[in-house]
Design a protein around this nucleic acid. Structure first.
Lengths: 126, 126
DNA sequence: ACGCTAATGCGAATGCATTTGCATTATACA
DNA sequence: TGTATAATGCAAATGCATTCGCATTAGCGT
């Protein structure tokens, strides 16, 4: 049977706290504030487990590589802040999929990646 | 001095012929129709060279990984056909960058990846 | 045509994210 | 509480794209 471990709980908590797409390094760093001994291999094992369970999904960000985020948030896009290097999830979608491609192309899905500065970095730049 | 080799000429020709973003495997396969002996290491060396020269640029496609495309085409987006696995470059942009993110986010740039079926695959599906 | 040397082809080596084997730890059922 | 075993931490191993070393080939200036 599957056991509830402090490590997995910590990882889940990190996603709930941050509410944004996270990379392994970030998950590891934030998770260690809860479980000091948290190991990278454990993170990978639990990410896989949470993906199988349908609680997380993997995304490939063109600038940040592999990221993980909670499922069930509906269609949204990703904003990468080059100030703090965080990737935010922006709900909603202003793209008209009909007019996004020329005649003849059948558009079934899309992903939008935005780049710039987040509100917090815009307010206090380093 | 830099020499003009049949291999590099072939690689350039592949990009001019296809007029779309290409991955290494594809470049190698198409290049070999011109220079049978074309080697993967040579492709990498020339891609780097053409990027340094500013003739090519690299893009990271969330589904196709690293792709290369000619520069100087202006702002465009990428359409990935899951029929033929080709990535097309779609000129123009229907995204309003002002309204793409909530108040407070400063959007400086964006990338859009579309997924679906290209005209040629829609006409003759396999 | 000749000769210098940049560029190629080949296979081995690298760097990186991810995974695995195994001894150890700790969860949860009896 | 004791115990079976799932899960961890660690380090080594893997898989992958990309790079490198080196002997050989082939542009290009003479």
């Amino acid at each position: 049977m599957q056991r509830k471990t402090t490590q997995r709980t910590a990882i889940e908590q990190v996603f709930l706290n941050e509410d944004r797409a996270l990379g392994i390094e970030e998950i590891l760093r934030l998770g260690r504030t809860q479980v000091e001994s948290l190991n990278q291999a454990t993170v990978y094992r639990n990410l896989k487990l949470l993906i199988d369970k349908g609680w997380l999904k993997q995304i490939n960000h063109p600038a940040m590589g592999t990221l993980y985020e909670c499922t069930g948030k509906g269609h949204h896009h990703h904003f990468h802040c080059h100030g703090c290097n965080r990737v935010f999830e922006l709900p909603g979608c202003s793209l008209n999929q009909e007019t996004a491609a020329p005649e003849g192309f059948i558009v079934e899905d899309h992903e939008i990646f935005l780049f710039g500065v987040c509100p917090s970095c815009a307010a206090s730049p380093q």
